[in-house]
Computed example of a mutant assay.
Amino acid sequence: MVQVSERRPVGRKKLAAILAAAVVLLSGCSPLDESELKRLALPIAGSDRSEPMWHLWLGAWITTLVVFVVVFALILYAPIRYRRRRGEEAGPSQIRYNLPIEVLYTITPVMIVSVFFFHTVQAQSTMLEDVENPDHTIEVVGSKWQWTFNYLEPEATDGETVYDQGDTEHLPDLYLPVNESVEFQLTSPDVIHSFWVPEFYFKMDVFPGSQDNSFTMTPNREGTFTGRCAEFCGIYHTRMLFNVHVVSRDEYDAHLEELEEAGQIGRPQGPSEATKIAGTPDDRGE
């Protein structure tokens, strides 16, 4: 009679130790770290709305890592644990129509998705919280294919509204004061665009017509960032870029005065101004 070697149980303690070490390693990451690896490929955070998005992103990484380790361990475990050994005439018995197992691999993904959904809604609610009486109000006009930023601060510019504007060849500039709340009012004269500054960990669609979106946030890190349109809006979508300058309050006020002196007074809404596209023979966007 041939004796079959005793099968050793899987190293659950080792697997748990690996998962615990990985979770501890990820928990040491930060959105403000200079290392891109420790920021988990995100840019350095630059607004007060970055924290809830960071926690959501970190949780997604931890969940993905746990699922990967468990699934990969099972892939390795199954052929080793149930390989045919010398003296055995057949492999392991096949399991089909096993109700508990079928319920397990049906319920588990539903639970994971439900947890993701819950935390996504929670982060979204936190990021969309309004600030009463924001320090500044800026109207963002997205059009084919450029951005216009109207600074609705008549008290800082002798009762006038000034604006920054550019096109696909000369990118517009958006100036924001650091550590002061800003309400962004988003509107479009043509198609759906999306206002996105990666360092703010936040974006919102810009709708045409009467449906205007708005949100409030506080930039909390000085620097120059690149904003962009995150919604495919036409052939020159990739050129819808703009520069974001987060500066001190004195620099912000000085910029508004420069716009007033340069004659950039008014509140452009896009249709008549959004006609220039760099690289075309007549520089018209028709």
Rank of each mutant, 00 (worst) to 15 (best):
E129F: 04
S35R: 00
D205S: 07
L99K: 13
L65I: 15
E153R: 01
T148K: 00
D190N: 10
E169Q: 05
F149Y: 09
E34K: 06
A278T: 12
V69G: 05
R39D: 09
N150D: 01
T63G: 15
E231N: 12
T280I: 02
E139V: 11
E36D: 10
R249S: 12
P43W: 09
S114W: 08
E88M: 03
A78H: 09
V70D: 08
I62A: 12
C233W: 01
G159H: 09
L104R: 10
R12A: 13
V10E: 15
V140T: 10
Y82N: 04
T126Y: 00
E183I: 06
R85K: 01
S272G: 08
A22P: 13
G91V: 03
I112R: 07
E89Y: 10
R49G: 04
P92A: 13
V141I: 14
T187N: 09
M240K: 09
D282N: 12
W196R: 13
A278N: 11
D158T: 04
S5K: 13
R284Y: 11
C229M: 07
T275H: 09
Y151R: 02
E222G: 12
I101A: 15
Q165H: 08
Q264Y: 13
V140D: 05
F149Q: 06
E183S: 03
D212Q: 15
P154E: 05
F232R: 14
R83G: 00
T224P: 04
S93E: 14
T148L: 01
Q185S: 02
S5W: 03
L174F: 07
C233P: 08
E139I: 02
V115P: 06
F215R: 10
D253G: 10
V244Y: 03
I80N: 08
Q264K: 14
Y175T: 01
E261D: 12
A22C: 13
L171E: 11
L256W: 10
E257M: 05
V247W: 01
N243T: 15
E6N: 10
L76I: 03
E160D: 14
G227T: 04
F184T: 07
V23D: 10
P198K: 03
T226G: 08
G142N: 03
P198R: 01
V67P: 12
P43G: 11
S272W: 00
G285T: 10
I44A: 14
A123C: 07
P52N: 01
W61D: 05
E89P: 12
A262W: 07
E51P: 02
H245G: 05
L56S: 07
D253C: 07
L186V: 03
H170M: 06
L26F: 14
P208Q: 05
V71H: 11
N133F: 03
G87T: 05
L176S: 05
A123I: 02
W196Q: 13
E273M: 02
S114C: 02
I18V: 15
E6C: 00
V70P: 09
R8E: 14
P189C: 06
S143H: 00
V178F: 02
W54V: 08
V197P: 14
F149S: 01
S181N: 06
L19R: 08
